[in-house]
């Protein structure tokens, strides 16, 4: 499988900190996949996210995006165009006075000519379903809508990868679904690679692969079906079990003879029905 990002033996310390925040982390991100990165507060997952588009540079090791390297000054702009970040707080990343100004801001930074800019703005707002809001001001938008505008701003730069850094954690359930559905469509239909840093285990369950970070190290990596069976690992990484797994376990505790733990409610109901 083709890799879009490779993280190789990356160690990183914030200035003045004795213990490194990332310790020898290596990671391949496959082109077109949805990769969820989970871990406790302070596990280094957000720091890792900021490594991916060169907002932070490794103290040791290297991060490569396509044929570019984040540590090389000649490559950094191309890296940032290819890897777009959506951050946690919708209010902190809305810089324009209207939706179209906000998207134009990023394009201006890359020196895109005006005609091309107008075309790209119209295209990208349509792809996140915000075309009716082009002239709206930020305070007229919900949190989920602001995050979709942030995503449109990234799309306008024709990226290969979108990194969601806890981008739904400040949204209500409706906003969360709005944003995840938007990104999922981009992932499935357009093959954009998605890396999602999240505390939302149900979201991680639907990822192609999951990486578990713990104390600055990569503690595990694999498909959700395998990762979420590892109860002790999840607990020690400050995570909880997703609902259906927790219920599977509680049922076994009550003497119900389930053959395994199930990931979804539907699977579990069907398995129970067979026992009845």
């Amino acid at each position: 499988m083709e890799n879009i990002i490779t993280v190789k033996d990356v160690t990183f310390s914030y200035p003045g900190e004795e213990t490194p925040t990332l310790k020898g982390v290596s990671l391949d991100v496959h082109k077109g996949e949805w990769l969820s990165i989970v871990g406790h507060n302070g596990s280094g997952k957000s720091t890792l996210a900021k490594m991916l588009n060169g907002l932070l540079l490794p103290s040791e090791g290297a991060v490569n995006v396509s044929q570019y390297t984040t540590g090389l000054p000649d490559d950094i702009w191309e890296v940032r165009r290819l890897v777009g970040m959506v951050f946690q707080n919708p209010d902190n990343q809305f810089v324009g006075t209207s939706v179209q100004d906000d998207i134009a801001f990023g394009l201006e930074n890359f020196g895109v000519p005006r005609d091309e800019m107008v075309k790209r703005i119209n295209e990208s707002v349509a792809r996140v379903g915000m075309e009716a809001f082009l002239n709206q001001e930020p305070h007229q938008l919900s949190g989920g809508q602001k995050q979709r505008v942030a995503i449109a701003g990234i799309l306008a730069q024709k990226p290969s990868v979108i990194v969601l850094d806890e981008a739904t954690s400040m949204l209500d359930p409706i906003g969360r679904i709005e944003v995840i559905d938007t990104v999922r469509e981009l992932n499935k239909k357009e093959g954009i690679t998605v890396i999602s840093i999240t505390h939302d285990l149900e979201e991680a369950l639907s990822a192609d692969r999951v990486v578990v970070m713990k104390m600055g190290e990569k503690a595990a990596e694999g498909v959700p079906e395998d990762i979420f069976q590892q109860r002790e690992l999840l607990k020690s990484a400050g995570l909880d079990l997703p609902f259906s797994l927790k219920l599977s376990e509680a049922l076994r505790h009550q003497g119900v003879e389930l053959d395994k733990s199930y990931l979804t409610q539907e699977e579990l109901v069907n398995a129970l029905w067979k026992l009845a």
């Binding site: 219920l247 509680a250 109901v269 129970l272």
Partner: peptide
């Protein structure tokens, strides 16, 4: 989950406490 189980099994179970343990007890 309990609604799904009720639909499947034709039962009419209800929870008084909303913990996973209580749900597991009812279903088992």
């Amino acid at each position: 989950f309990l609604q799904k189980w009720n639909e499947k099994s034709g039962l009419n179970l209800a929870l008084t406490k909303f913990t996973v343990e209580e749900l597991a007890k009812q279903v088992s």
